[in-house]
Computed example of a mutant assay.
Amino acid sequence: MLEDKTWNWQGFPITYQNYGEQGPGVILIHGFGASWRHWRKNLPVLGQVSRCYALDLIGFGNSAKPTPGKEIEYTFETWGQQVGEFCEQVVGTPAFFVGNSIGSIVAMQSAIAYPDLALGVAGINCSLRLLHERKRLEIPWYRSQGAAIAQLILGNATIGNLFFRQIARPQTIKKILLQAYQRQEAVSDELIEIILKPAQDPGASDVFRAFTRYSQGPLPEDLLPNLPCEAILLWGTKDPWEPLELGRELAKFPTVKQFIELEGLGHCPQDEAPEIVNPILQQWFR
């Protein structure tokens, strides 16, 4: 296993890895609860045509997990700033920003906040943020209230920490991943360990509770019209969490130059079927 590299950001250690020494810069941004290792099947291949980096967002993976509300705010603006400054200080040139799930929102936020650094944005099964407070206005009141009550309950430190401990178990993580992935064989012991290990770090439960309460911030439909660059969207058609038909609506924005449906794949196609996703991204970088 490759040894992690460390970048210091605002006094906090941030973990990352990179491959490739030639070509355009590329930054890979993971989703909720994941880490740079969720791109382990992509980095070496994409690094053949680019200078490819993947980092752990602050609060996730092996990166620092400072106290929410006291040391840091876990928002897309925070993560967008982290990625933008990583691009400036580590990559050293403009880059393509590639994200999966909430990482797609971070990629868009980074491009808007640092327009001179954005060569393009790729969103893979972009989070639609269906629990956002504005989205709740569009759903039946009983569903909206249920989400708000759940957030309130999980916001309680004792209950939230207990709930998190129930999730942070191998059998529970495997069950969740088997929902997200259509290719069941991709849910390996290695993948479970990648998700489980950082969840056992001090502060991981606090980050989880902070994010479950976070129902503000930008939506993809807010960000896409304001991108300073072109975007492509890749979408596993069998994603159980981010419905394909809603994803197709995002393709209507003029900045979205391609909407690529990945037939039969789930929420994390880059890990589930790297042999399909990698060539698409390689061609886009070229």
Rank of each mutant, 00 (worst) to 15 (best):
A54D: 04
Q10D: 06
Y53E: 00
P66N: 11
W39P: 09
A34I: 09
N18T: 15
Y19H: 15
L55N: 01
V26L: 12
F86P: 02
N18M: 15
P13I: 04
V49Y: 13
I72R: 04
Q17V: 14
E73D: 11
P66Y: 10
I58R: 01
P13K: 05
R40F: 13
V45I: 14
E77G: 09
E3L: 14
L46I: 09
I72D: 06
G47R: 13
V45Q: 14
H30P: 03
N42F: 10
Q48T: 10
H38W: 14
N62P: 07
A54Y: 03
I14A: 00
A54L: 04
Q17M: 13
F86Y: 01
A54Q: 03
L46Y: 14
E88F: 12
Y16M: 07
T15M: 09
G23V: 12
W39L: 03
W79P: 05
E77N: 06
G59P: 01
Y74V: 00
E88N: 12
F12Y: 13
G47P: 08
L46H: 12
F76G: 00
F86N: 00
V45Y: 15
W39S: 07
H30A: 05
P13C: 03
Q81E: 04
G69N: 01
Q81D: 05
G80A: 04
N62A: 15
E71A: 11
Q10A: 02
L28I: 05
W79V: 02
G84P: 01
N42T: 08
W9D: 01
N42E: 09
Q22I: 13
W7F: 11
I27W: 03
T75R: 02
V49Q: 11
H38C: 11
W9C: 00
Y19P: 06
A64G: 06
Q10F: 02
W79I: 04
E85Y: 03
L43V: 07
G47S: 10
Q82S: 02
I27S: 02
K65R: 15
G61A: 07
Q48V: 07
G33Q: 12
D4K: 05
K41V: 06
G11N: 08
H38E: 14
I72E: 05
M1Y: 10
P13S: 06
V83P: 03
G84C: 06
E85M: 08
L57V: 03
S63P: 07
V45S: 11
T67C: 09
T67N: 11
W39A: 04
P66E: 08
W7S: 07
D4C: 10
T67Y: 10
C87W: 05
T75Y: 01
M1R: 09
L2H: 13
G69K: 02
Y74M: 02
G25Q: 09
I72N: 06
I14F: 00
F32N: 14
Y74T: 01
N62E: 10
I27N: 03
E85N: 00
W36L: 10
Q82D: 04
